[in-house]
Nucleic acid binder design. Sequence first.
RNA 1: GGCGGGGUAGCCAAACGGUAAGGCAGUGGUUUGCAAAACCACCAUUAGCGGGUUCGACUCCCGCCUCCGCCUCCA
Length: 469
Amino acid sequence: MPLTLFDTMSRAQRELTPLDGSTYRFYACGPTVYGPAHIGNFRTFVLQDLFRRVLELGGTPTKHVRNLTDLDDKTIRVSQEQGQTLTDFTRHWTLLFHADCAALHCLPPHIEPSAVEHIPHQVRMIEELIAKGHAYAAPDGSVYFKITSFPDYGRLSRVKERELKQGASVSDDEYEKDTLGDFALWKARKPEDGPNFWPAPWGEGRPGWHLECSAMIREYLGDTFDLHSGGVDLVFPHHENEIAQSECCADSGHHGFAAHWFHITHLLVDGKKMSKSLGNLYTLADLAAKGYTPEEVRYVLTAAHYRAQLNFTFDSLDGARQALAKIARAERALAARAGQDAAPSYESLIGQDPGPFAPAWTALNHDLNTAETLGHVFTALKALKPDALTPAEALAAWRGLHLILAAFGIVLPQEKADEVPAEVRTVAEARWAARNAKDWAESDRLRGELDTLGWTMKDGREDYTLTRK
RNA sequence: GGCGGGGUAGCCAAACGGUAAGGCAGUGGUUUGCAAAACCACCAUUAGCGGGUUCGACUCCCGCCUCCGCCUCCA
């Protein structure tokens, strides 16, 4: 079943097939490593991960390239403010980003190039663009892309004649540009950049932000590749500028850059855009401090369709916990009936027949409609009665369920047995004995005692469970 | 102002020109010494507002209201 996905450029849903006939090669704009990524950033990265999983599990291998922006205004400014070298500074935030991605069960990209390690590639592109008449050096040593030299400029964002928002001021670090829309390929060295400058034929400085992606795509994916992805905010100007740079550089001429554009809509928090001033900007660490797991966060991020604004609330996080627990119970029942223990590996699920979860798999392959998919999952789980299935039927259903879970990157909560202190265990045993002797008064008194100790005791038929409050 | 995406039950959120999935919460029941958990059942005659097209619209068209995003380095 081919995956169909909405394409920003053509504004239509299109089937995804690898240009080279075998591997689907895509590029995702990565994080700027100058601070902790927030859950809004992670919506994008988690959805890109889900996208990749659906492709791979459907039988299409991928080549996933995602950059690290470690060289831009923010990384330079903040590292300077903190008296750190750019390298030390960005390494710190890169490590945290990787830890967060791992916690969210995102597959690592196959290649993760960094901007600062590809300066020669960027310089080379600028030289080509100047030679072809698409760029010019300003007197101060900055180089700009000349948008009037690229008639297609604005095709992706459909903004031909861009107008400055009323009252918007042109920032004072804009140098001498021919036209307002021209953007920097190279930014001349400034005193506040500190030691962060590099030599170039037109003077010391550093590459402009948009250029890094173009240069690294060219290096790792070539002039033409399958898909480019990022948050909606990148449509303009970042992706528009990338198209201009890359297509003007490419030997093949125009229209050959990304064959498909996949943009993920922003996350809202309590109905508003996240911002520090509103106090609604959350990182994974913030949510962990409130007791939420990365799995619960991932569930919320993937539960809504990627092209709709997702309103992130703590209620939805609580709901995610219950929903995951519900899936986990059903999974255990199926696993038991199927005689399975550990979850099947990701690799073993490639090409898996979804079985009773076929409607879910179909919905997922239809423009990644995750919300509809989950609806089908719960409907199917409700219809399945594990005890009425043969072990073979249970196995098929169990593997079908795991296909969907693998695509979502859902890792089910384990039944974790809390370490029970001996003192608590003693009281619990006493209560269990009292209860079995039908001494309700003593039983309730001991339960109260456990409560004081910070433990909750729940009675089962054969046994009891103790959980920390 | 330009471009774009939304407004569906208490919350989150889908589908569909043919009469509203699913999750959470809630309610009733089964079970339980009680409880918790679990399981079963119920839970929008109604879709921001007003028109229109149609045998029939939440779904298509028009107008309005409203929320959100981008408009030079923000996922």
